[in-house]
Nucleic acid binder design. Structure first.
Lengths: 182, 182
DNA sequence: GCAAAAATGGAGTTGACAATCCAGAAAATG
DNA sequence: CATTTTCTGGATTGTCAACTCCATTTTTGC
């Protein structure tokens, strides 16, 4: 569903890939819609888990930069094919499946809060000015990431992603406390 | 197709909406794929045209801010339903229809160049530091816009869009020449 | 005006896909 | 061990959507 879209993936395709019969699938999932909701949950969990090691420690400029670099490197490996698994689902399902939309919103919320936690730690530690708003900074970073991934997917070039992430990093840097680096 | 997605819109739906018969549609478009490509071109042209008045004069901080505010106001009117018409198509079609992808990439390119032209004018005029890179700034702004629209669509709240656009504005501001305001 | 070409309406064909059904196998329960 | 419940395979059904066909109308070129 990530590769061909939700609408472009038939239940039969899923059967083949999972090597199960129709009755089995429909035993565990009432209808395709339910299967899709499970895919949403799975992708959210999967993306957050994969990023967990870096995401849970975004409490320094260095860690943030390492995280950004890892994302760019990943898209490079993939030759810029496919954007963000969550973003793709979000775009396809938001207006079509209310339940999927809320699930994806919750996923983004968790993602944002991971980033926010790191930024708050930096602010509390004094690395960031008290004026820095962790929520808005995290939202900006996440938006830059999502938009950068989309443009990068369309252009088949990591340039936009790098520009967007650098911008977000620069923005956070602009709240760096003068005395304390890192 | 903007409301229900490309896959969720049948040729019959288009027939009804356009009040034409099947043979007529298939006379002008060989297959649904061709119709979709026409929709891509149309949406790109439509979005750029709608923004033309503001977009063609993005050569001051004030103009940029007015443009951003207009975008937020528009999403507000729409109650955050539906993201960017170009972005939605991009996400759905990029991996599925190579020709659509290139068309969308070209559309983004034109969009970015409009922004870039304004920024370059600002730099040439001395409002921005010579160090400001109009291309990267424009890319960052566009990514923030796209990501902000996506998050806003999923959350049904303009907060993320505002955070993203404010971030991009702040980033451009950080290249403001010290003497010259605006 | 008239023939050729383009455009149109609408029924019809085909294929794909979501969802069902039932018969049989395995597991759980007592 | 018997019986009830859960699970599984595979064929089937019904619907819907992409696309085709052909008869008829309108437009074009001379």
């Amino acid at each position: 569903m990530f590769e061909r879209g939700v609408a472009g993936t038939s239940v039969e395709d899923v059967q083949r890939a999972a090597k199960v019969s129709a009755s089995q699938l429909y035993h565990y999932f009432k209808e395709k819609r339910e299967l899709v909701l499970a895919v949403v949950d799975h992708q959210v969990a999967s993306v957050l888990e994969a990023q967990q090691p870096l995401l849970s420690r975004l409490d320094s400029f260095e860690a943030l930069q390492t995280w950004c670099d890892a994302i760019v490197a990943l898209q490079d490996e993939r030759q810029c094919r496919g954007g963000c698994p969550i973003g793709s689902l979000a775009s396809e399902l938001s207006e079509l499946e209310p339940e999927a939309r809320t699930g994806l919103a919750a996923g983004y919320m968790r993602w944002e809060q991971s980033i926010r936690a790191g930024l708050r730690a930096m602010r509390d530690r004094g690395a960031l000015t008290p004026a820095a708003d962790p929520e808005r900074l995290a939202l900006g970073m996440l938006a830059a990431l999502q938009g950068g991934l989309l443009l990068t997917q369309v252009r088949r070039d990591t340039g936009p992603l790098r520009a967007a992430l650098d911008m977000a990093m620069g923005h956070i840097h602009s709240f760096a406390a003068s005395g304390e680096p890192g």
